[in-house]
Design a protein around this nucleic acid. Sequence first.
RNA 1: GCCGUUUUAGCUCAGUGGUAGAGCACUUCCUUGGUAAGGAAGAGGUCAUGGGUUCAAAUCCCAUAAAUGGCUCCA
Length: 641
Amino acid sequence: MPQIALPDGSLRELPDHATGYDLAASISEGLARNALAVTVNGEVRDLHRPLPDGASVSILTWNDPLGKATYWHSSAHLMAEALEVLYPGVKLAIGPAIENGFYYDVDLGEGRSISSNDFPAIEQKMLELAKAKSQYIRREVPKAEAIAYFTDKQDPYKLELLENLEDGQITFYTQGNFTDLCRGPHIPDTGTIKAAKLMNVAGAFWRGDEKNKQLTRLYGITFPKAKELAEYLERLEEAKRRDHRKLGKELKLFAFSERVGAGLPLWLPKGTALRERLEQFLRKAQVKAGYQPVVTPHIGAKELYVTSGHYEKYGADSFQPIRTPNPGEEFFLKPMNCPHHCEIYKTEPRSYRDLPVRLAEFGTVYRYEQSGELHGLTRVRGFTQDDAHIFCRPDQVKDEFMKVIDIVLYVLNALDFKDFTAQISLRDPENKTKYIGTDENWAKAEAAIQEAAAEKGLTTTTEYGEAAFYGPKLDFMVRDAIGRRWQLGTVQVDYNLPIRFGLEYTAADNSKATPVMIHRAPFGSLERFVAVLIEHCGGNFPLWLTPEQFIVLPISDKYVEYAHEVKARLEAEDLRGTIDARDERIGRKIRDGEMAKTPYLLVVGEKEAQDGIVSVRKHGEGDLGSMPLADFIKSVQSQLL
RNA sequence: GCCGUUUUAGCUCAGUGGUAGAGCACUUCCUUGGUAAGGAAGAGGUCAUGGGUUCAAAUCCCAUAAAUGGCUCCA
């Protein structure tokens, strides 16, 4: 009689060989119906495998992230089955579940391709196959048999995957007429897959290596109910409406010009207003936190980057040097500000008493990103970092790190970013040659980050191999409207650059010591931050940040004069806005003002001019009625505090 | 950089191997109005760029550029 522990701590006795399904059925009929898989001691397993005695088990349904992942993984198999029917001879590579749905990488063979026009047929075939309620049957297979199977099927990708697997680890899953090499687990049967949609088709390299053959990657998503698919598609539509590229154009924030060059944004007046307000906001916080603003040029001599090591690492793949009439003289557009700041540090001898030195600069940098990588304002070739470098003693690293985390949290909080995660990026322990610096320094830096993050109570994930080549880092990731995760704020420890630049300070015992450098940028870059902010608030910026806080709308040209009076009064109170003096009816002016997402529309006509009042309309709330101008000012100012 | 898709008026987009279209925006005129589009007229286009096929190309083919969805990358 196996005894099973449930998540709530309770114990349950089940008959011998009882499965996850039996467990679910012993709890309730509904749970048995909805169960997709189980976790056994934390490991996801098929619902119909016997449970080991003493295991702690939780039952996964569609509402569990792991349940969804299992469901979508099984859906990938279903799509593969459909593809084998519709495209005989198709070769299958890998097909995992992803955050929203799943994909399968396939090799259709020479001369065949799939376009979105083909999706409906595939979706239909999937649903047709799903209706058969085929069970996903797990079978352990000896390696020799597995090799024979895929040799017979002429599937080179599966054979390659098999090379790394040993007897005892190889399992096949079969549903209907489809068998795949797969670790599993899977849902019980295809019957729960009621809605299927192929989302898009893209190229992907076999095993992610661009030297390998490019496969066709088909993205899809499935749901247990058609309604959920409809809701999902609606969410995607909403995301499109919030896309910063669309809103940036509509709200006249920024633009691109082919003539200027790909990935080089032009900030329009309104976008600039927004951006400068963000800069002021952070500048103020930084001065309070002991940062000293500095300014450095946009270019630097080649030698600067040879010293920093960036020339060797990125020189060939970036913007090429600027030459001068002087033979052999070369300058580079600066791809980062740190080397310049190192030189500022070196302008005077530093004592341990002077540290930390915190140099801050909104520094515009240029990086030649791959053309296929450019994306709106989130990935550009010229951008401004809210950069600062902290030079400190080794014993100050953790403390400084925590202070930086405070600033980042202050920024995210001020802009109402709640859904962020902190990612600690460490060195790939398997491949240390990618990085520069000693093992000892890496270990110290990695420990400092982890401790500081832990003491600040951050929820973190840790990624190995994601560190910068000179040091580990802590990145703050925020989701955009379409659910993509973007890195915004970043904090990076660097034990390397100070050595390369020969930075030093005089320690208490009069010896020379090397300072530690911390790179940090709470926004990351103004460009990316504004992009994510646009999507985050759907273009409805906080009042303190929005380019135009009000528009005064005179009912007719008779009241334009009063409109100017109102505007002057508001500007005297540091509020900003314009007058819509067009020869249009009030309904039209309101419509345009609302579409521009202006927070306050102030309608003024005969009544208002007579009594010195304004009729206030608030974006998203509608007409608030009229009030004395002084009251309006007070109410707005109370929101700005 | 690689694979797919796209590129027509300032914007959003129709369109066909045979002389270029709409709505909005813009200009002018009428209208002086009260909480999400008042009316009329006008102007505006190397159909991304360069080649090719064709009697004829914005349309078909090739190359390039940019945008876009992915992949790889991201100091």
